[in-house]
Amino acid sequence: MTGLPSGVSRTAVLIAQAREGESARPSGLFRDPLARPLVEAAGRIDGVSEAGRRAADHFVLRTRYFDDRLTEAAAAGIRQVVLLAAGLDTRAFRLDWPEDLALFEVDLPDLVAFKEKVLADQGAQPRCARKAVAADLREDWPAALTEAGFDPERPTAWLIEGVLMYLAPEDGARVLERVGELSAPGSRLSAEHVNEAYLRQPAMKPAMNRLQATQAAWLSSVEDPVDWLAGFGWRAEVTHQADLARSLGRPVPPMADSSVVGAARIWLVTALS
């Protein structure tokens, strides 16, 4: 079966392929048995470039980083999680959630329809109360989210993974404004972004050209994520990829090695309201 929409949605396949590969490792940082069925249904992306292979290392580290942030939020008593631009995410099925936790996945209608069919075909059963919400982050997604049962009066753990760089600066700011409006005291936010130096790396040019050709260009960057998120009411901390890799007993990926990438940075951020 094929049918995953083109554009940004196709990037979700590369991320799922990275999760599939990591799950096959005896010492994998996580296990995702649904990654392979999702990849096979979507159509595997072959001939991945060197930049793509390096990105896979980042996807693996990023996945574990955000896994830990979300499970920490649940352990702290938060019972509402929202994944914005969830893509082919399977955290509802593979993480050990409290039974009373509600998890919402927001993404484009075509992608949601594709993913729901694959999950149904696999007989996948979530480990929490899961709700898929079909909505575009550039439109009125808060209305769709609340209609699906989201409660803005309850503290929420938000995840904005792998999407902000695809949004124009004004659209990204609007997403953060809306997240702030929906966040009760005690909410948490985890997010990823990049700085301009990362966008301008010569090594990234082939990948950027391919993304642009599939209508998935990167449109924004952030130089100081702590200051940026403070403007939306969040107290943020940044974890650098190199430190994350070392803490997990993994080699520092070339794309996180300052001797290789210079001032280029991928920001992994966690924040409190």
Rank of each mutant, 00 (worst) to 15 (best):
G47R: 10
G47M: 13
G47I: 08
V48Y: 04
S49M: 13
E50N: 14
E50M: 09
G52Y: 10
R54N: 07
F59D: 02
V60M: 11
V60L: 12
L61G: 11
L61V: 09
L61I: 09
R62C: 06
R62Q: 04
R64M: 06
Y65M: 14
D67P: 13
R69H: 04
L70G: 03
L70M: 15
L70H: 09
L70D: 05
L70Y: 05
E72Q: 15
A73E: 01
A74L: 04
A74V: 03
A75G: 09
A76N: 10
A76Y: 07
A76Q: 13
G77C: 02
V81G: 03
L84F: 02
A85T: 06
A85V: 08
A85P: 13
G87C: 05
G87N: 11
G87V: 10
L88M: 07
L88C: 08
D89F: 11
T90I: 02
A92K: 06
F93Y: 15
F93E: 07
R94L: 00
L95I: 08
D96K: 14
W97Y: 09
P98I: 15
P98N: 12
E99G: 15
D100R: 14
D100T: 14
L101H: 02
F104Q: 02
F104D: 04
E105F: 04
V106L: 12
V106P: 12
V106Y: 12
D107K: 13
D107W: 13
D110E: 15
D110P: 11
L111F: 05
V112L: 01
A113P: 08
A113Y: 01
F114Q: 03
F114M: 05
K115F: 00
E116W: 01
K117L: 01
K117Y: 00
K117M: 01
Q122C: 11
G123P: 07
G123S: 09
Q125W: 00
P126C: 02
R127N: 07
R127P: 03
R127I: 00
C128P: 12
A129S: 14
